[in-house]
């Protein structure tokens, strides 16, 4: 049988889909569920552009099979802003500090930041550097990204669900 049905929560919404067993989470989210903030780039789990949170932990959705999120909670950048469109603290911080240039890596960086702040609401710069080193910014705007994460922590509630 080359299909399987999975139940999971996508940005808080119960979701049931039947997918080919070889469907990758990134493709499920982007193509089937229209979460276009999930970016595919290196497709080797290296660059972090496709980072989403699965049960609060950052994972590379390009290197995760969709069947593996059965029963899990998946969060993408689409779930960060409030229903009225107001930005989350992390998004606000990235906007304030210029934590993006071309913007391609930003959704992955935001999800990584969300995961970090949930585990460590007041991270030291070394902690931030360690986490952010998981992701690649081809514009090399790392200093502003580091400042953005620090600002997100200042704004508090950065990892709010």
């Amino acid at each position: 049988m080359n299909e399987t049905t999975i139940d999971f929560r996508l940005n808080g919404t119960p979701t049931e889909v039947t997918v080919p067993t070889n469907r990758l989470l990134a493709d499920l989210l982007r193509e089937d569920l229209r979460c276009h903030g999930v970016r595919s780039s290196c497709e080797r789990g290296v660059c972090g552009a496709c980072t989403v949170l699965v049960d609060d932990l950052p994972v590379a959705s390009c290197s995760t099979f969709a069947f593996d999120v059965d029963g899990a909670s998946v969060e993408t950048v689409e779930g960060l802003a409030a229903a009225d469109g107001s930005l989350s603290p992390q998004q606000q911080a990235f906007a304030e500090c210029g934590g993006f240039q071309c913007g391609f890596c930003t959704s992955g960086m935001l999800m990584l930041t969300t995961g970090l702040l949930r585990q460590n609401p007041c991270p030291k710069r070394a902690d931030i550097r360690s986490w952010i080193s998981s992701n690649t910014c081809r514009c090399t705007g790392y200093e502003m990204i580091l400042e953005s994460v620090e600002r997100a922590a200042e704004l508090g509630d950065g990892g709010a669900r």
Binding site: N2, N22, D27, R30
Partner: peptide
Amino acid sequence: AQTQSSIPPFELHR
């Protein structure tokens, strides 16, 4: 193909 090199289908066992 949505990915650089698509993954072939397989039967899944869990």
